[in-house]
């Protein structure tokens, strides 16, 4: 049998992956595409974002105003990832 990167038997892994895909296919068939059910929050954003933030782009008003703290964390993650890349490469090519 071909060796794999895992400590488990490869046949077990294949069965696991197929099972996971089948489990994921159940809600995929159940959801209805093109008609989202839970959309009250998004409808609020669409209706009120222009009055509350003044931006025409609703996505920009969500990213930078309603969820601005999320974007601050995202910018920090990007900063730290780049810091890690720089640190790793400085040790490689001194």
């Amino acid at each position: 049998m071909k060796e794999t990167g895992s400590i488990f038997h490869p046949r077990f892994m294949i069965v696991l992956v197929v099972l996971a895909t089948l489990i994921l296919l159940v809600p995929a068939v159940g959801l209805n595409f093109g008609d989202p059910i839970t959309s009250s929050t998004d409808q609020y954003y669409i209706d009120h974002s222009q009055v509350e933030t003044g931006a025409n782009n609703v996505v920009a008003s969500i990213v930078f105003d309603y969820r601005g703290f999320d974007t601050l964390g995202e910018a920090t993650v990007l900063f730290i990832a780049v810091l890690g890349v720089a640190m790793v490469f400085r040790r490689l090519y001194k």
């Binding site: 060796e3 794999t4 990167g5 895992s6 490869p10 892994m13 294949i14 696991l16 992956v17 197929v18 996971a20 895909t21 994921l24």
Partner: peptide
């Protein structure tokens, strides 16, 4: 997702 899980688990 199934394809990516297979790649992550089965590739060396």
């Amino acid at each position: 997702i199934g394809i990516s899980l297979a790649i992550i688990l089965l590739k060396k």
